[in-house]
Nucleic acid binder design. Sequence first.
RNA 1: CGGGGCGUGGCGCAGCUCGGUAGCGCGCCUGCUUUGGGAGCAGGAGGCCCCCGGUUCGAAUCCGGGCGCCCCGACCA
Length: 488
Amino acid sequence: MADERKLTPRGEDFAAWYNEVVLRAELADYSPVRGSMVIRPWGYGIWENMQAALDRRFKDTGHENAYFPLLIPMNFIEKEKAHVEGFKPELAVVTHAGGKELEESLVIRPTSETVVYHMYAKWVQSYRDLPVLMNQWANVMRWELRTRLFLRTAEFLWQEGHTAHVSSEEAEQETQLILGLYREFMESWIAMPVLTGLKTESEKFAGAVRSYSCEALMQDNRALQAGTSHFLGQNFSKQFDLKFQSVEGKDEYAWNTSWGVSTRMVGGMVMTHGDDQGIVVPPRLAPVQVVIVPIIKGGDAKATAIHHKAEELAGMLTAQHVRVKVDRRDHLSPGAKFYEWERKGVPFRLELGPKDLDKEQVVLVQRVAPHDGPRKEFLSHVHATTMLPERLEEFQRELLANAVRRREDNSFRGITDWGEMKEILDTQGGFVYTGWSGDPAVEQRAKEEMKATIRVIPGEEFQSGTDPVRCIGGSGASRMEVVWARAY
RNA sequence: CGGGGCGUGGCGCAGCUCGGUAGCGCGCCUGCUUUGGGAGCAGGAGGCCCCCGGUUCGAAUCCGGGCGCCCCGACCA
C-alpha cells in the first residue's frame, strides 16, 4: 500500500480489500490456530444483533432453544451414509482424553443432526409429541483446507434448527417457512437481497432430500450462500429410530428438517456494503448507530459546555432507543476519529464544536451519501435528535435499494449460449439465468470450464417469466430455469 | 493437498548479496502546545532477529533441518 492508512481499493484487489477491511474495522483477528479466528467486540456486537433479530423470529414461529453437546460419538456420524460421506473429510476427531486413548473416538460436531435425532427418538412416542421445533446457537467445526475470515473458518458460530413432524407436507412447510424467514431477515436487517430456491442434487446438504438456500451477490460479482433450509425426509429418523405412533395406532418414522445461518453473514454484510473507506454497517445491525464527536476548541469553559451538550444529545437519542456513543478520547484529533468510525461503518456521525454550540446546531454526516442529498448536513439540535430514528430507517432502506440495484445490474437473464455464459462469467461475473435439462454432466462441465455452479433453481418469484426452451448445456430441452455463478 | 510469499520492538517494514554497533515509519509512555478530515515539539520505554543444530574468534546475515502463518488453485455454511 502506498499509504498504509488507506485500504487497498476494492477494484484493485477485492480479496486483499476484504482481508484488510475485516482486520482494520476490528471485526475479527487471526488466532494462533490456523484457520480459526477471534471475533472482536465490534464484530461480535454485529453478530449479537443478528442473533437477537433471528431468535425473535424463531420464537415467534413456535421454536424453542436448547443446547446439544459439542462432542458426538463417531458411530453416530457414520450412521447416515450420505451424511458421513459429506462430512468425513472435514471432521476434527478427539482420540485422546484423560491421558488415555479413547475406546471410541469423539467427533467435534460439524453439525448436530445425528445427536439431535438420537435424542428426539428418546423423547417422541406419539403423534401428540410432534412437532418438535428446536433451535440451538452453537459453534461447529469443519476442518477446511482453505480459510477466510468469516466466510470459511475451521470453527464458526451459527444457529441450527432441527424439527420433527408427523408428515412430509408439514416438514416441507417448515423448510419453506424458515427459508422465507431467512430471506426477510437478510433483506430487512442486513440489507442484503437474496435469491431463494432449490439446490441441485450435487449442491445439496449431505443427508438431505432437498436443500433450499439463500444466495446473495457480492460486490465482486461472486455468489455467497448465506443460509440453507433442508428437508431431510425420513433419512435421519430411520437411522436413529425416530418413530411415533400415529392417530391410527401405527408406528411411523418422523419427518425432519434442519436449517442454519452462520457468522458467514457478517462476511456477506461486509462484501455487500463496504467501500474503499471501510465497512458499512446497516443501522439495524450497528452496535453504535450514531457516534458523537465533540470538537474541543477555545478554552476549558467551552470544552466543558461542548461535552455537556454532547452528553445531553446522547441522552435524547438514547431515550429514543438510538444506540449512541460519545467519543470523548482526547488524544485523537477529530479527523482521526472520523476515519476510525467510518472504517468501522457507523451509520451516522454527529460533530459538535464551538461554532455549532453557538448556533444551536450540529453537523450530521451519513456514512454513505444518500442519492438525493449531501453526505453532510447542518441541523438544529432538536431537529437532529428527533429526526435520527427515521433517518436510520431511511438509510437502512437505501442500503437495500442500492444492493438490489447492483444485483439486478449484474444479473443476466435469458442466456442461451454456452460461450456467452462463459464470457459473462470470465469477464464480469454475476448471476446468469439459463435453461437446464437437469443433467448433472452439464453442471460438471460448467465447473471445469468456467468454475461456475448452479447456485439455485430459483423460486417462482425470482424466475424470468418466460420458460427457457433449451438447456444451456447443448441439445436437450430445458426442464427448469437455473441461476449460475462463481461462488464463495 | 499442490504452487508462491513471509517470519526482525505492538503494527508495517529495511538490514541478509558482502558475517562484526539492530535500524526506520507508525503506534505506545511523560510533558507542553493543540483539536472543524489521519496534530506539533521535546524527552522516553520497548527486541531469546520463529525454533534447533552446524560453520566461524564472532551469525539477524552463511549452511542443514524443523515449525508456523498468509496468499493463489481442487472439496465446503
